[in-house]
């Protein structure tokens, strides 16, 4: 009554499962269509108010400015889709900027060793978040909140309450400089190229075996465990990606806006808002990396729009809160 299990001629029993048709990829839950529509709408609103925004130069510089938050959202995506949270990224960004300034102390020769050190530190923070969450079974909300507080305190202590030293120009160029006079495009910020490189790398990862497994872990960790997945290690990898992404974001932000204790303030919530806005389910198991990154871009576009329309920047966090609540309730309603 059934066909041979092991030696089925190719394509013979196409009846039951219809091959690899990627049907309705955009509209299904967790797809990227809604965020594309929202982004397009916001861009139209901007176009009405400020047509100049679409000049290649200003558009590219906008994308460059948005790069840090898009990269943070990309890192946060992996953590959230695996069923966890990373609240430590904002203070990690601050820590990295402050540490870089003090260690480089305006000496160009120290730039690259310090950059290497920052990546090491980002990795370490990710590993710590992952191990505490998975081996000690502390909820990641608490683990990373603890890490947030530890980093804030440690940085204050280490720098005696005021940032010291300074970044080298070599360090700062990633965040503030651009290739000038590029044909057709004009000014092409370095930050945008960094963003493209990170995006490509992470998109490849999200499509690899490890990346797909990560999503399955977020969906049902028990199933993953009973299939031979090392759930703890998988989640730790997600935290490490988030820590490394925060490091890249810190390098760009330090270059762009300079050294201060406010460098990364509140960025963890901006990143989480962006990820949720991009259609990624809180609690894990559903959503696309591209959606999360588009969510970050949409959020930045929204803030720009608020700026153009003269809405106070103080409302940023209120808007983020509303977006999180709205996105989560829409998800909950749809599940009913």
């Amino acid at each position: 009554m059934t066909a041979e299990v092991t030696r089925e001629p190719e394509g013979a029993a196409a009846r039951p499962v219809a091959g690899g048709v990627v049907r309705g990829r955009l509209v299904r839950p967790g797809g990227v269509l809604p965020i594309v529509v929202i982004l397009a709408l916001l861009l139209v609103l901007i176009a009405i108010q400020q047509p100049d925004f679409f000049q290649p130069a200003s558009l590219l510089s906008f994308l460059g400015r948005s790069a840090p938050i898009i990269i943070l959202a990309a890192g946060q995506y992996f953590v959230i889709v695996s069923g966890e949270f990373d609240l430590s990224v904002g203070s990690l960004v601050t820590a990295q900027v402050v540490v870089a300034a003090r260690l480089i102390d305006s000496d160009p020769g120290r730039t690259w060793p310090v950059v290497l050190l920052l990546f090491g530190f980002g990795l370490l923070v990710g590993v710590a978040n992952g191990l505490v969450t998975t081996t000690l079974r502390v909820p990641s909300f608490i683990t990373t909140l603890g890490m947030y507080l530890i980093l804030v305190g440690a940085v204050y202590l280490w720098s005696d309450g005021a940032p010291r030293g300074g970044l080298s120009d070599e360090f700062r160029r990633f965040g503030r400089l651009a290739f000038e006079d590029v044909p057709l495009l004009g000014r092409l910020p370095y930050a945008l190229l960094v963003l493209l490189a990170v995006a490509v790398l992470l998109l490849l990862f999200s499509r690899s075996d490890a990346g797909r497994t990560l999503v399955a872990v977020g969906d049902n960790p028990r199933t993953a465990e009973l299939t031979g997945v090392r759930v703890g290690r998988t989640k730790t990898v997600a935290f490490v990606i988030s820590g490394l992404a925060a490091t890249v974001a810190a390098i760009l932000l330090g270059g762009y806006s300079g050294v201060s204790f406010q460098a990364g303030l509140g960025l963890e919530f901006t990143a989480i808002t962006a990820v949720v806005l991009g259609g990624v389910a809180l609690g894990g198991g559903r959503g696309a990396l591209l959606g999360a990154m588009l969510g970050a871009l949409t959020l930045e576009t929204l803030f720009t729009l608020m700026n153009f329309y003269g809405v106070s920047g103080a409302l940023k966090s209120t808007v983020q809160g509303l977006i999180i609540l709205a996105a989560v309730s829409v998800g909950a309603l749809r599940r009913r």
Partner: peptide, 19 residues
């Protein structure tokens, strides 16, 4: 503990090999 409910048929079938 047998399926990951919100993943596709294909992702569920690939889970063990991938992991």
């Amino acid at each position: 503990e047998g399926i990951a409910a919100r993943q596709s048929v294909l992702d569920n079938a690939l889970l063990a090999g991938r992991a």
